[in-house]
Design a protein around this nucleic acid. Structure first.
Lengths: 157, 157
DNA sequence: TAAATTTCTTAATCTACATTAATGTATAAA
DNA sequence: TTTATACATTAATGTAGATTAAGAAATTTA
């Protein structure tokens, strides 16, 4: 149960690595993401303080995701083998986020996904750069930028 | 632990229902899905024999998903409260499917998602109607249809 | 069996978002 | 402070997949 300090941009895990761990975030902000064959990053999840960031693969399988720090952070690495001490309620909560994510990606437009994101994670909007928000939403930074200015224009009467 | 027979099209759970359960599929095929504000269905997961179909909400929260039978099926309803008897390995496997789903939806084209689907769930292709496959892939039935005939044409030399 | 309903295909048109590219603005490094 | 690098905006053009519509197959029901 030792805490570790990591600096911004520090990589904790790469795709293909073995012995993947979970990371409890004490302070700061992590992210997990994939890189597709065209070299494009796709953010899977943000991990602000209080969250646990995991790649959902079995402890002996190679990782699917990259994990790195968006801000200087303090984290606690957790061995996945210690399956005992899993807080099931928290676990289900995190899966629910995933479930919502899939539903969102399938049924909502980019604007709706953005609206949903800012109401669900207002503080992350402030802390992560735009292109990462875009990456999480599944759109390009350019699309997010135009979407935002259209939103602004329509809000002032 | 009693088995229940359900017939094709029988609805097991509606969005908003309380006391959501998990359903172990002994035989047949279930699906879970949402209906968006335009009345469009979006299939979240298929549940063939051996699978457990769940809406990932806490047992006391209202459901997010509809669950019904695509084929006549035999199922075992499981109370969610019995958190003890959860097979963690199977649980993680199912989350992994979800993780892959998100990654796919974010980074792959409709064709690639379809290719991935047929190689991962070859038997479901045969058993579920096309429009449901389309719904799972996040495209329209028309798009899937054209995509399929293009694929066929390009395969014969 | 026929009739009704559901499912699948094909084609024309439309639209949300991607791509490309050029310009502007921060942040970090020298 | 200047220069370089990363990040954000805006606009023009392109494209995957949506929508619409109409007909053909298949499946269900009577």
């Amino acid at each position: 149960m030792k805490k570790i300090k990591v600096v911004k941009k520090q990589i904790l895990q790469r795709k293909g690595d073995l012995h993947s761990k979970s990371y409890k975030v004490e302070s700061g902000l992590l992210r997990s993401y994939t890189i597709d064959d065209k070299g494009k990053e796709h953010i899977f999840m943000f991990g602000p303080e209080g969250w646990i960031v995991t790649d959902y693969v079995s402890p002996n399988e190679p990782c699917e995701l990259y994990i790195d720090a968006i801000e200087d952070s303090v984290i606690v690495p957790i061995e996945k083998t210690s399956s005992q001490d899993i807080d099931l309620k928290k676990f289900i909560k995190r899966i629910r986020v995933l479930q919502n994510r899939v539903i969102m990606l399938m049924s909502a437009s980019a604007v709706d996904r953005y609206e949903h994101f800012i109401s669900t994670y207002p503080n992350i909007i402030q802390r992560a750069p735009q292109h990462m928000i875009a990456s999480y939403l599944g759109i390009t930074p350019e699309a997010l930028s135009t979407l935002k200015s259209q939103r602004l224009r329509s809000k002032k009467k």
